[in-house]
Design a binder for these strands. Sequence first.
DNA 1: AGTTAAACCTGGTTGC
DNA 2: TGCAACCAGGTTTAAC
Length: 280
Amino acid sequence: MPELPEVEVTRRSIDEPLRDARVLGVRLGKPLRWPLGCRPESLVGARIGPVARRGKYLWMPMLRDPAADAGQAGGLLMHLGMSGSLSLSNLPPPAGAHDHFDLETSRGLLRLTDPRRFGAVVWSAGLDVAPAAGLLASLGPEPFDPALTPSTFHADLHTRRSPIKTVLLSGEVVVGAGNIYACEALFRAGIDPRLRAHLISRPRAARLLEAIRSTLAQALALGGSTLRDFRDAHGMNGEFQASAAVYGREGQACPVCGTTVRRLVQSQRSTYFCGRCQRR
DNA sequence: AGTTAAACCTGGTTGC
DNA sequence: TGCAACCAGGTTTAAC
């Protein structure tokens, strides 16, 4: 479910409601991708700081007041995997079969529901995202980072020989575009997803960067994409999927030229594209 | 070293 | 109706 827009929508839906909330308890369900990395009880008493995002990861600071608090300061690095979503509620229903992490706080219960359990909640000591860098080390720049320019983007693409679709999915050149938005951005940029990244010209790289930004920005404004089950922490679904030109539309007419949208498999993921609008 | 397959899981949909 | 096969928003790990 969650690419950058969905994760950011989620972040915005929990940041303010949980600000300065106290952790009252933790409940763990089945194992997620990685172990929590600390005793669940050790989180009790912490104060939740501003929730941040890096790529598709969320960072929730667990602050301590040194005066009368022996607990360790750090934070929780959270990932929604393929099927995860967070919900925040004052009257939560009993934990279901797919509810694998509950953070009981003074401002409601934050719950991670994740049927496939590709998601994660990992403790990391330290007050910033950076120390949790083990998992974040290979991430490329944020799509809206001003330091990411057509020049740097083009230079990075120039070092990759894989198909551009695969390179975008790797998140090593720019983070945030998953399968839906990589397909949509390539469509908007008029680039064939099979084109090897290093062969992309400077002007086309500039156009692709702009397409990635406009696609992610539009998705964010529409609350993300809800293909099956994505919801923000208040239960609101996204609306971007209705705006998708090619994703999930194999066999349908391209909205621009009418050519039949095709599907192919790259890196074991479906790629949707228009063979006429998108060129090598 | 760089690129590609396999793996982690569950559930919904499709087709015989 | 039953059951096998395939599909799904991600990312690490192992293998060419």
